[in-house]
């Protein structure tokens, strides 16, 4: 890992946000599950995307992350999510919170699709990884 990569990994982002589509998905998930706010969905979405090994890079149709702004300190108060991300993906050489911003949106949208498809109906379904579960094609 280079010096510049290390600098990039410590990051300098203060705020992160959902994309517009992800924000709508997050609101639906808050309605459906006992999550207190979209902030919870942000963390769950990122964790879900990691577990489902969704790409860390932004897809072409990702769009602008211009939904409500969340302070990084609110999303990841102790830096736990960031540390886990880096431990899982030591190859990352950019700001981890940019990747978390990507993951929370793609994860929330993916989760929302699976809920709509009736594949995830409860927290139990969500926390139990599917044997062969993979992302639903858009």
């Amino acid at each position: 890992m280079t010096q510049s990569a290390n600098t990039a990994r410590t990051g300098g982002r203060v705020n992160i946000a959902f994309t517009a589509a992800a924000e709508q998905a997050a609101r639906r998930l808050v309605e459906r599950f006992p999550f207190a706010s979209p902030l919870d969905v942000a963390r769950v979405g990122a964790a879900y995307a990691l577990r489902e090994r969704l790409p860390l890079t932004r897809p072409g149709d990702f769009g602008a992350a211009n939904g409500s702004n969340y302070n990084v300190g609110s999303v990841d108060p102790q830096g736990e999510l960031r540390d886990l991300l880096l431990a899982l993906h030591p190859e990352i050489d950019e700001d981890p919170y940019r990747i978390i911003e990507t993951l929370m949106s793609v994860g929330a949208i993916e989760l929302d699709k699976r809920v709509a498809a009736g594949q995830i109906l409860s927290l139990r379904d969500l926390i139990t990884p599917p044997a062969t579960g993979r992302a639903i094609p858009a």
Binding site: F33, D40, R51
Partner: peptide, 17 residues
Amino acid sequence: LDAAAGDVWRVVLAPLV
């Protein structure tokens, strides 16, 4: 359940970890 729901992301991540 609401209080515990804050930990769901950790549980989701646990198998990968």
